[in-house]
Amino acid sequence: MIDSVLAILSAVMLGLGGFFMVSGAIGLLRFPDFYSRMHAASMTDTLGSYLVVGGLMLTAGWGLPLFKLALILVFIFFTSPTAGHALAKSAQHCDLRLPGGGASTKKADNEISGSAQGPDSRDVVSADRV
């Protein structure tokens, strides 16, 4: 009884996870500028990954594989925002100071004045620690 409920639940989670990841990849291809693509990519990294790993955890049963999957989940949970923030910050310092074109140009002056504070890598380092 419990087994079949778990199997159905894990199938649903795996299917939903696959759906969210494919939508993220579609967004990665379709969105017009770098920062929008980053939102699509963060979708595959958050809910897509959680659902897939969670679905696998439900089928794993008690034991070491469950622990390792949980470790992978925790690791993805903590590193994906750090990598995303590092990517955005690095893009800000290099050539993509603004999301080029599109609706965001009206904020252009605001952003340039904001990003002119020089490179500062401390934020990336401290984001690592949480």
Binding site: Y35, M38, H39, A40, S42, M43, T46, L47, F77, S80, P81, T82, G84, H85, A88, K89, Q92, G114, S115, Q117, D120, D123, A127, V130
Partner: peptide
Amino acid sequence: NSITLTPGTVTVS
């Protein structure tokens, strides 16, 4: 971190 973690918003600095 939470802002970056929710898709749709990203902390740039």
